[in-house]
Amino acid sequence: MTVNGEVSFWWRSLGGPPTPRPALPGSTDADVCIVGAGYTGLWTAYYLKRLQPDLRIVVLEQRFAGFGASGRNGGWLTNSVTGGRARYATTHGRDAATAQQRALNATVDEVIAVTAAEAIDADIVKGGELTVARNPAQLERLRAFVAAEAEWPATDLELLDADATAARVAVDDALAGAWHPHCARIHPAKLVRGLADAVERLGVVIREDTHVR
């Protein structure tokens, strides 16, 4: 039994889960086989096919494209480094960690550009990301966070006072805010649905209801 709004709030807002594509009917040959039709698998298929159109690419998905985390996330597209930037600097060096941050910044605009090029309506609005402090303890932590981020290039974080914060969003008792431009609001189910359609238009085959062992 499926609960939680028929997979997620996002899919419920689209009328429920989509009709699954046909399952893999039997043996097949491919140059590239991708397991999983979430964002990672679909973006991989998209760029491989754009770079080398003659590749025979098959994406295998156990449920349907966007069933997992790609269709259930918080609805934002941002430049955050999972696990923290310092962790990657420890293993790969500061220059590599900085390069990764610049790539993540650019990725936000790249996703927006692809949705425009492929006519994917994913309710995207790029307004940046704002973290708000509402009491002295939060303000102290926010200032420390901004100071730590300022030690790195390409973080593009701004510390806003109460008035500048209020000019962006009305939050009761806001003392300050930290804002950066590399974030957009998205409708994740619309994005993953549109991306799946886009890779199929390029000639990628997506097989759903197909369990991979």
Rank of each mutant, 00 (worst) to 15 (best):
P22D: 04
A106S: 15
E140I: 13
D123M: 06
V81F: 04
G71D: 04
G84W: 04
L42W: 06
T90K: 13
T107E: 15
G71I: 07
A113R: 14
I124E: 08
G5L: 14
V59R: 03
P20N: 08
V205N: 11
T155M: 13
G194C: 03
E6A: 13
L42C: 00
G41E: 02
G66D: 10
K190L: 11
W11H: 10
E200V: 02
V192K: 03
E140G: 08
A122I: 06
G84E: 06
P188H: 05
L157W: 11
A116I: 08
D209E: 15
L14T: 12
R193Q: 11
V199Q: 00
V146I: 01
L142S: 07
A170W: 01
D161S: 04
G66V: 00
L60D: 01
A133G: 02
R134W: 05
G75L: 00
P53Y: 09
W179K: 02
A167M: 12
K49P: 06
A164Q: 12
E118Y: 03
S13H: 08
N135M: 04
Q100T: 15
G177V: 03
P22H: 10
I112R: 07
V114Q: 08
R201M: 08
T40G: 06
C183W: 10
W11K: 05
L14E: 13
W76T: 15
L24G: 04
V3P: 12
D123H: 06
V205F: 09
W11S: 06
L48E: 05
V171I: 15
L77K: 00
Y88L: 10
F145Q: 05
S27D: 14
E140S: 12
W43E: 04
L195K: 03
R94M: 09
I57C: 05
S80K: 15
A148V: 03
A65N: 03
V125Q: 12
R56W: 08
R207T: 07
N73L: 04
D197W: 06
L24Q: 11
L51T: 11
V199D: 02
R85H: 07
R12T: 13
